[in-house]
Amino acid sequence: MAKRVLLAKMGLDSHDTGIVTVAHILRNAGYEVIYLGLHNYADEVVNTAIAEDVDAIGVSFLSGQHTTQMRRLLDAMKKSELDLPVLCGGVIPADDAADLKAMGVAEVFSPGTLSAEVVRRVELAVGA
């Protein structure tokens, strides 16, 4: 059965080129992708992840809110006892990327990652 990935933008940031492109890449690679669109709140993402029984959650940021929003998402997951790999992409300074990984984020993708590399690293985190 195809693995299911939930993708969402959080907060007010609306730069969605990256996440829309990743949705396309993952669909082409055989994943079932549920994309929630813009302006989601941590609880909504977690509730959808549970309801849709997904295998991973992916979010992306281009306006500097990654640390705040990821902390919220991870807290909400903990509260709901949801244990899934979380993937993050976008314009994220190297120091912050290291912090995110320390917080438990499975993968941090930078702009300019080619499709094959995206798929390879998602497979590592989620399983093929």
Partner: peptide, 22 residues
């Protein structure tokens, strides 16, 4: 900043974590 761009005050709940950032 993003909250202002969408017409929200800095103390609106929706602005949490976004004030003055962009």
């Amino acid at each position: 900043d993003l909250p202002t761009s969408y017409g929200f005050d800095s103390d609106d709940g929706i602005a949490d974590g976004e004030v003055g950032v962009t």
